[in-house]
Design a protein around this nucleic acid. Structure first.
Lengths: 254, 254
DNA sequence: ATGTCTTTGTGAACGCGTGCACAAAGATGG
DNA sequence: CCATCTTTGTGCACGCGTTCACAAAGACAT
């Protein structure tokens, strides 16, 4: 899960809870897969399993959208695909610009999951003059100098920042000034934006750090379990073992 | 924010709430920046601003770790960096393998944010024989056939999946069977894993879809505001306008 | 038409996370 | 040594999200 949210606190957009909105794309993906297999209807139980959530939660989520199911039968797959798409705004075309065409930016430009969901990469932008004009994923890279013009000419309202951390805030400011109101930020920085602009953050190293935390805890529990398996008077209690629970005061400096 | 969690429900690992764990890397980043500027101490207010959170939340988060502050002064930067690093398990070395060396995998291999936090890319693995032996980010790509041996020889417990969706579950199963217990998944699929294995998911298109939802809502509100600005009897109420609130029944099929 | 069976939609209870507001703790100056 | 000032640590209340459990609704067979 990408972390960071920077949303208006809890605006309950049109009555749909934020947590539900975050799951709609999940349901949509599962439904699309069913649709491709020409499955006509699906029960909340089946769909929930496919999306990896609790069925009660799924039903409650759908209840915020309306009463789209048929009791005793389930949900019509095609109909639900359409309803969720419409709710998410995917029935319209969203031109997107990607700023910062390094490894990550190039990967994003090549990512297939965008086009299939109404997102169109309108332009790639980079500050390096050596890149200007070079095609990436079939689209020529344009120079940062033209950022404002590109945004306005294409009516772009969603921007993706894949620059180094140092450049992110500056790029963000220019995007916002040019009219962008939603930003997906891959740079490891906290962006400050005016009210009315949404920022979502994806941070790869944060995800790994969270995994490391749980990994460490698992290792600690294992060690504790092993220690507990040894009846009583094993080699223990002496060196505090510096396990993840080695809560040594470590000498407060200053 | 990467979405998807697939964690044990609410195990309150060692008493530290999951939400707090997710913010620790944020604090750590801000603190590291301060440390590089040789700032000796920082107040909860300042640090909270730098990390983009509420200061009360930050203090409560830290209170789960222990009483590491000094009233009237603030927190010692170096000390706190150490404590959070230790808590997250970043004081030890975490060998990581990346499976699937396409655009995204290559971007991840080149990502600098790993090495600086105790993560070491132990190996790159891909199923394409044409890639085998080719260096990416200075590391030669190895073939999927050797996956199990690589995991075991390097004592890897964290795996990153950057393969196409179709291959993800199979790769996941092999990783888990070989001993991996934490997985960061970039493939757009729900992975099923046995108990005791943590999966975190990062899905680029989901993030964009959530932004699109809010973007659409903003456009709708704007339109509504404009309509409201016109006193009363404007051209309205006729075609339902098909705005984001055009909740047309749309003819239930089936 | 009536009964049975399946599955939805939701009321209600509960738990987690957030933020306020303040008392306790320590620094600092006289 | 005392007063004042700053900043932490936390008790408390509130709201969101999750889950249970069940009544209502419709399909389907007889």
């Amino acid at each position: 899960m990408a972390t960071g949210r920077t949303h208006r606190p809890a605006t309950r957009s049109r009555g749909i809870p934020e947590a539900t909105v975050a799951r709609l794309p999940l349901y949509l993906r599962a439904l699309t897969a069913l649709s491709e297999r020409s499955v006509p209807t699906v029960s909340s139980e089946e769909l929930a399993a496919a999306a990896g959530v609790n069925s009660a939660k799924l039903r409650k989520d759908f209840s915020y959208l309306g009463s789209y199911g048929t009791r005793g039968v389930g949900y019509d797959v095609e109909y639900l695909v359409y309803q969720i798409s419409r709710e998410l705004g995917l029935t319209q075309d969203w031109p997107v610009v990607i700023v910062g065409i390094g490894n990550l930016g190039a990967a994003l430009a090549n990512y297939g999951g965008f086009a299939s969901r109404g997102f169109r990469v309108a332009a790639l932008i980079d500050a390096d003059p050596a890149l200007t004009g070079k095609p990436v994923a079939g689209i020529p890279v344009q120079h940062t100098d033209d950022l404002e013009k590109i945004i306005q000419d294409n009516g772009v309202s969603i921007g993706v920042i894949a620059t180094p951390a140092g450049a992110a805030q500056q790029v963000c400011d220019r995007l916002v000034a040019a009219g962008v109101t939603s930003i997906l930020n891959f740079a490891p920085t906290v962006l400050s934006v005016p009210d009315g602009v949404d920022v979502r953050k994806v941070d790869l190293s944060i995800e790994l750090q969270i995994l490391a935390f749980h990994e460490q805890r698992k290792a600690g529990e294992e060690a504790a379990a092993e220690a507990a398996a040894v009846p009583a008077a094993a080699t223990r209690g002496d060196s505090a073992d510096q396990g993840p629970d080695g809560d040594v005061p470590a000498v407060m400096p200053a």
